[in-house]
Nucleic acid binder design. Structure first.
Length: 566
RNA sequence: UGCCCCUUAGCUCAACUGGCAGAGCGUCUGACUCUGGAUCAGAAGGUUCCAGGUUCGAAACCUGGAGGGGCAACCA
């Protein structure tokens, strides 16, 4: 080991720096406290995964706590099914929250703070219409104009606020606003709205008994303060909201308040990370649901076969910064392969079957060949027996009637090794009436059996295969990126991200052929189909008699590069 | 023409309070040989947006400029 000093605490990014400083200086007088605050109005996606890994990771690394808090202040969009999905996803990612809280449980406390602010002359009830409020806020370059109701007496404000709470007013009749500065350079500080009336709304946890709902700015920082959060981590677009966050926490009387830190949200190539857009994909039927394997949702990735380890590794690699970060999808795919490479067994599956008959192999004979479950460089062991016989299937792509340069697989007269088996030679083609190759007639070299005494004969290529009689038919779903361009929002004027959808994001192969050894494996088993990619049997649709596999991710494709080079 | 943030390798991003500019991906080269679409190793690649300034020393601090982004929902 070198003599490099080992830091007491992890210091990987600017946020962990700050937290480490908090710990070192005892700034908060308690262990770091973070929270993950989703609104239960949709499923969690990769962007949330980044935030989850950050918030829970910091708590874990620094011996602090991390709460799961549902920011459920909008009765129109929130549902119990989403809180259940969110909890499932966080757990699946490998994190356990300390406290499980709901902003809707704080409505009473928030109301008390509202009264407090009114009494301090820091808030007032405004009767202006929504339109008037918007207009009077001014613009980024011109100051707003104060509401005619801005200077109501404390008693009048209090009376009005209580009647708002009692449900005496219709939606939109009035709102509670903070009294700050209508000329503030930060638009958010121009008397921001605190409470709005939703008298008829049905809140999924509060029913219809509660009539006034806090807005994000009013609920968020105060919820953090109530829970004793030390560092409130959020994305960059909330930077301007930090002023109102601090203002409210201070005027509500919290000493030792939480501090907001902003970091860049994740943007991933060839997909969208916005609950609003993902909701549209679901509602308009462009995908089969929130857990469609093409979705960048946690549920979608899980269904596809990605492991939580890969997502955590990916979050680690991309890090956190103060600058918007568009990450290449290749980087994510790399993390997925990296994880699966060391974990999953190899099997042989022929995606596009082409029949091969070994003319010099005895009819009716079946021999079992020993196949390694892991390659030499993966520290796992295990073998299995796979049947070999006169009639086989190989992949159509492993044969070229007129071989391209550097094509080392099968072509008329060429030799190739069958993985774990023999070297075969292509002697003859069988074509249909249209001239398509429908069968290859080959001979095998009995001396070249894999692992045998004379198996050291060299050939340039090794291909995968299955024995025709014993192979299992299966459906294979080849998933690809959901959008055909890196930034789905970068479309011509008048179009939106829907027009950038990749029409080939799902290609179904109804009848692929897989070796029989996978027949007894439970659904949800992951494999590498050698030379094809990583796959998992679909947890919803796969059954013993009808296997269905999802492609998690392909292998790194250097043959495609070779083809491109010509 | 307000406030705030950002600009570092081909790409995406790091670099604690100023101290020899790093990583991943990609690219190229090599190794292995029963995954030649796996894996492993190595290499190339930089005027740190521009112009000044402070400093023994600047990617970092100051001034000015250019380019990109966020903010004017009774969403979060």
């Amino acid at each position: 080991m070198s003599d490099t000093p080992i830091p007491d605490l992890p210091r990987r990014d600017f946020i962990r720096e700050l937290v480490a400083d908090d710990v070192a200086t005892g700034r908060f007088g308690r262990p770091p406290a973070t929270r993950f605050p989703p609104e239960p109005n949709g499923f969690l996606h990769m962007g949330h995964a980044k935030s989850i890994c950050l918030n829970f990771g910091i708590a874990r690394e620094f011996g602090g706590t991390c709460n799961l808090r549902f920011d459920d202040t909008n009765p129109f969009t929130e549902e119990m099914q989403y809180v259940e999905a969110i909890k499932r996803d966080v757990e699946w990612l490998g994190f356990k929250w300390d406290g499980e809280f709901y902003a809707s449980d704080y409505f009473e406390q928030l109301y008390d703070i509202a009264e407090l602010l009114v009494k301090k002359g820091k808030a007032y009830v405004d009767d202006q219409t929504e339109e008037e409020i918007r207009t009077n806020r001014g613009t980024v370059t011109s100051p707003g104009t104060p509401s005619p109701f801005r200077n109501r007496s404390t008693d009048e404000n209090l009376d009005l606020l209580r009647r708002m709470k009692a449900g005496e007013f219709a939606d939109g009749a009035c709102v509670l606003r903070a009294k700050i500065d209508m000329a503030h350079p930060n638009m958010i500080m121009r008397d921001p709205l605190l409470l709005r009336i939703r008298r008829g709304a049905h809140h999924y946890r509060r029913g219809t008994s509660w009539h006034i709902f806090p807005l994000y700015d009013f609920a968020h920082g105060l919820s953090d303060a109530i829970e004793g959060i030390t560092r409130s981590l959020c994305t960059l677009e909330f930077k301007d909201n930090r002023d109102i966050y601090d203002w409210l926490v201070e005027h509500a009387g919290f000493t030792d308040p939480p501090r907001q830190i902003e970091f860049a949200r994740l943007e991933l190539d060839y997909t969208v990370l916005s609950k609003r857009k993902l909701l549209r994909l679901v509602n308009e039927g462009h995908v089969s649901g929130w857990d469609d394997p093409r979705m960048p949702t946690i549920a979608g990735l899980r269904r596809r076969g990605v492991r939580p380890e890969a997502i955590r590794d990916f979050a680690e690699v991309i890090g956190v910064a103060r600058k918007d970060a568009r990450v290449e999808i290749a980087s994510f795919e790399h993390a997925v392969r990296n994880d699966l490479n060391m974990e999953v067994p190899r099997v042989l599956c022929v995606l596009k079957p082409l029949k091969v008959v070994l003319t010099n192999y005895p009819e009716g004979r079946v021999e079992m060949l020993e196949a390694q479950n892991y390659p030499h460089d993966v520290p796992k062991t295990g073998t299995r027996q796979i049947p070999f016989s006169r009639e086989l299937y190989i992949d159509r792509d492993d044969f070229m009637e007129v071989p391209a340069k550097k094509f080392f697989r099968l072509s008329p007269g060429s030799e190739v090794r069958l993985r774990f088996g023999y070297i075969i030679k292509c002697e003859e083609l069988v074509k249909d009436a249209a001239g398509n190759v429908v069968e290859l007639r080959c001979t095998y070299d009995a001396e070249t059996k894999s692992g045998g005494a004379n198996s050291d004969k060299k050939v340039k290529g090794t291909i995968h295969w299955v024995s025709a009689a014993q192979a299992l038919s299966c459906e294979v779903r080849l998933y690809d990126r959901l959008f055909s361009i890196p930034d789905p929002d970068d479309v011509p004027e008048g179009q939106d991200f829907i027009s950038a959808l990749n029409p080939d994001s799902l290609v179904v192969i109804p009848e692929a052929k897989v070796e029989p050894t996978v027949g007894q494996d439970p659904v949800g088993t992951r494999y590498q189909f050698e030379r094809a990619g990583y796959f998992m049997s679909d947890v919803e649709d796969s059954r013993p008699g009808k296997l269905v596999f999802n492609r998690i991710v392909g292998l790194r494709d250097s043959w495609a590069k070779e083809v491109k080079k010509g």
